[in-house]
Write a protein that binds this DNA or RNA. Structure first.
Lengths: 218, 218
DNA sequence: ATACGTTTCAAACATACGTTTGGCTGATAG
DNA sequence: CTATCAGCCAAACGTATGTTTGAAACGTAT
């Protein structure tokens, strides 16, 4: 690492620690001491801990959503058809590829997203929805083209289900790896899991919608 | 069951607050003041905050896993075939039906599970895996019978994906409801979402396994 | 070289937390 | 009646947290 500035050293360290232990469980002292900067630097440069959290997400999501927008432009221009595989494939390749120099970065990205969604009360969800709902809606529009037989409302929920599968699995990968290693004696990388995810999600998204609600009582 | 004693009042309140705000963000003072008991009561009856968390989960999961075991016995005895719909249906009906007197209880159950899985460092995951992995493995065995063409390793991950979809969606339901209400002007109950989940999960679990790994590069 | 705005630093501050303490209450048994 | 003991209570304890402070160090333009 080439002697980065204080701000970036804080962001780099906070990113990793937040993903590892959560927001509340990560103290500013833990961040600053590991980053090799003074404790007061966080409040000096960011104003508060909450602002730090927001800054971490902004640094992560802004390039991602811009790249996603560009990829969707590209897809529309070159006439690639809207299929679930194509649309989801773009997202996954992007999530895995935005930081090729650091393969662990993708895992951090997902763990952070998971932490963000677990935080029920915070304004973080609001912030994320405000800043990135546009790209999200665009993605959903493409998916709708891909599966026109699925009603929009149904698709909305299926996208949520997919989000859950992705974030939950990849954010809990560390622990799941130890389980799967014990049961199947095999490793699993982020890229590996992503490959398994795609057919699962595609199968779920384009599943037939039952026209009669299922009975929940026996 | 006598009148709600101190222990149960603490468990009832902690359950709700933990689900709402997370473990670290919920202080013992918040729990005890809302429960109308003395602060010291938690340490007196449970020993520590971590033991309280564990007790909350035990009260929730033990009846659930027992009921699930019974339902699986019943299924095996009556010769109901192993299909994804049947196996998942049992789990969902149980999760929604174990506390019919309080329909919000199911939501709390899922939110708590989500909180548990988000907590990366804690011994909570270990505890859950130790005490409830048997039922879990039994479930997975039945699913394997239902989709014999899916390799065990693949099925393992697909179950994780399904878990993620369920927990993530239902634990974030409050905020998602406001979104879906805004975009589609419609409410969504836990039972409603569960109905939508089933075909999605079935579609994902029994999706064909590609024999050639997908290319992640361009 | 001096002056000035920015960044860094050790130290302190106020607050919130989980936990512990020692005495009080009230029911129960001898 | 009194001895007992689990349950309850207000208060205090030690610690960790986010934040603030005021001075020192630094870089840069004058």
């Amino acid at each position: 690492m080439a002697q980065a500035g204080t701000v970036d050293r804080i962001l780099d360290t906070a990113e990793v620690l937040f993903a590892q232990k959560g927001f509340a469980e990560t103290s500013l002292r833990a961040i600053t001491s590991k980053a090799g900067v003074n404790l007061a630097a966080v409040n000096y440069h960011f104003g508060s801990k909450e602002a730090l959290i927001q800054a971490v997400f902004e640094r992560f999501l802004t390039p991602f959503s811009l790249a996603l927008d560009a990829k969707l432009d590209e897809m529309e221009a070159s006439g690639i058809p809207d299929t679930p595989e194509n649309v989801l494939g773009i997202v996954f390749r992007l999530a895995l590829g935005t930081h090729p120099e650091d393969p662990q970065r993708a895992a951090i990205f997902f763990r952070l997203s998971g932490q963000a969604y677990s935080q029920p009360q915070s304004h973080l969800r609001e912030y994320l929805h405000q800043h990135y709902s546009a790209v999200f809606a665009r993605l959903q529009r493409h998916l709708q083209q891909a599966v026109p037989d699925v009603p929009p409302m149904e698709l909305f929920w299926r996208v949520q289900f997919s989000l859950g599968a992705v974030i939950f699995t990849l954010s809990g990968m560390q622990s799941l790896q130890s389980i799967s290693k014990a049961d199947f004696n095999m490793d699993a990388s982020t890229a590996d899991i992503t490959k398994r995810l795609l057919p699962f999600l595609v199968g779920g998204i384009q599943a037939e919608v039952p026209d009669q609600p299922l009975h929940m009582g026996k």
